[in-house]
Nucleic acid binder design. Structure first.
Lengths: 137, 137
DNA sequence: GATAGGGCTTCCCCTTACTGGAAGGTCAAG
DNA sequence: CTTGACCTTCCAGTAAGGGGAAGCCCTATC
């Protein structure tokens, strides 16, 4: 399979596949003309990578997952630990975003959104703390 | 104020403040020794930037917000529009993360997490579609 | 055989928003 | 005069690719 075909099969852009080769995630063969020659298992690996990335795993996590996948003697506990760590990271991100969301949503609701310059959103971001107002320049 | 002091006052790392000068967000004066000399309004600007960034606004959005903040004739509608766009972007991100979270959480619950190699997490990421299984290498 | 086109190759720069570090100037204290 | 904390600039790197140039390869068509 050439890169174009494996791109269709795996659902990944050719650019991404070349990048994955660069960083050692896949090692396709080469035809005599220099073209990459992907085997079926390379395609499967790329599909795997696409799924793992879609679940938000980092490239380095994907590298570990691939190693576990390839290891018939793996313990599912190791995979689960990776997944749970990632789940926690996702939860943290969601919490951060929800904090932002709440603050911003509140400000948006407070803002009249008319032709006048008065704006609680700007006021909130400009409000100086005591610490700041003490500093004179 | 030197950069160290304004870093404390604004809560931003000195490195970040230099970067903000590089990209034109703040324009501190210079002392004869070459040190940056921040005025009170520079410090306020940096605090504003820190707040806006904490709400997740991009640097380019921050640039627009600063311009609106500086413009006494602004319409609060313009600020509100920016904020609402950003709120939508946040909502999209949260939705994406929650999708990931749900899938991953499901897989984690399915996985025994023991010494055996059988792992629904890996299986899920490795599962080939019909399209894929048709491709032979 | 020449040509057109599409696919493939490598290479380098660009993105976001900084962070780390090296090499060196400046300032106040002892 | 030295020490140490501050400041300066510049270079490189981060995550995960995307864009695009310059050029080779392959097939079809004339």
């Amino acid at each position: 399979m050439n890169i174009g075909e494996v791109a269709i099969v795996s659902g990944l852009p050719a650019k991404t596949i070349r990048y994955y080769e660069d960083i050692g995630l896949v090692k396709p063969l080469r035809d005599t003309n220099g073209y990459r020659a992907f085997r079926t298992r390379d395609a499967h690996k790329l599909t795997f990578l696409g799924r793992a990335r879609a679940l938000g795993f980092s490239i380095e996590d994907c590298r570990k997952l691939l190693a576990l996948w390839a290891d018939d003697t793996r313990a599912s506990a190791d995979v689960k630990a990776l997944a749970k760590d990632h789940l926690r990271a996702i939860d943290d991100k969601i919490a951060d975003l929800q904090d932002m969301r709440q603050t911003l949503d509140h400000l948006v609701r407070e803002c009249a959104g008319d032709h006048r310059p008065d704006c609680p959103i700007l006021q909130s971001m400009a409000r100086q703390t005591d610490m700041n107002s003490k500093a004179s320049g």
